[in-house]
Lab assay of single mutants.
Amino acid sequence: TGEEYIAVGDFTAQQVGDLTFKKGEILLAIEKKPDGWWIAKDAKGNEGLVPRTYLEPYS
């Protein structure tokens, strides 16, 4: 299990392996990579890379 984050903006996948999401979606951070791209999972179970700058902790 990971930590929940809320998307603060829309993001469209730029390449294969990225995860597209919309502002307000809750994402589960699976792995926090030091380069600023995290592996996350959305509510539908889709998994991919997301930019850290689009996420804020969800409580």
Rank of each mutant, 00 (worst) to 15 (best):
D10I: 03
A13L: 04
T12A: 09
G48F: 04
L55E: 02
W38T: 02
E31K: 12
F21T: 01
D35Y: 07
V16W: 10
L27R: 00
K41S: 07
Y58G: 05
E3C: 14
P57F: 08
E3K: 10
V50I: 05
P34L: 11
P51H: 14
G9P: 01
P57T: 07
V8N: 10
P51E: 07
A13C: 07
P51K: 08
L28W: 14
W38H: 01
G45H: 04
D35K: 04
K23L: 07
P57Y: 08
T1H: 14
G24K: 02
I26F: 06
D18A: 13
I30S: 03
P34K: 10
E25K: 02
D10R: 03
I26R: 07
F11G: 01
G9V: 13
K22M: 09
L49K: 13
A43H: 10
K22N: 08
L27K: 00
G2H: 14
I30P: 00
A40F: 08
L55Y: 02
A13Y: 03
T53K: 14
G17N: 06
G48C: 04
R52E: 14
I30T: 05
Q15S: 13
Q15G: 11
T12Q: 11
A43T: 12
A40H: 01
T20P: 09
L49C: 12
K32Q: 08
Q14Y: 09
Q14D: 08
P57G: 05
K44A: 13
E25C: 07
F11W: 14
T1A: 13
N46H: 09
V16N: 10
Y54K: 10
E3I: 11
A7R: 01
I6N: 02
S59I: 14
V16H: 11
F21M: 05
D10S: 10
E25R: 02
V50S: 01
D18L: 14
A29I: 15
N46A: 08
K33T: 09
K23H: 06
I26C: 07
E4A: 14
G36C: 07
G24Q: 02
K44N: 13
I30N: 02
A40V: 15
K33G: 12
K23N: 05
K22E: 06
R52L: 10
L27H: 00
S59F: 13
R52H: 14
V16P: 15
G36P: 03
Y5R: 01
L49Q: 09
L27V: 05
W37H: 05
Q14F: 10
D42Q: 02
E3S: 11
K32A: 06
A13P: 06
A40D: 00
R52C: 15
L55G: 00
S59T: 13
E31W: 12
W37S: 05
V50T: 03
G36E: 05
G17I: 04
R52G: 14
T20E: 07
E3L: 11
E56V: 14
I39T: 07
A7V: 04
E31S: 11
P57S: 07
E47R: 11
F21W: 02
L55T: 01
P34H: 10
P34C: 13
L55D: 02
Y5K: 00
W37Y: 08
G36F: 05
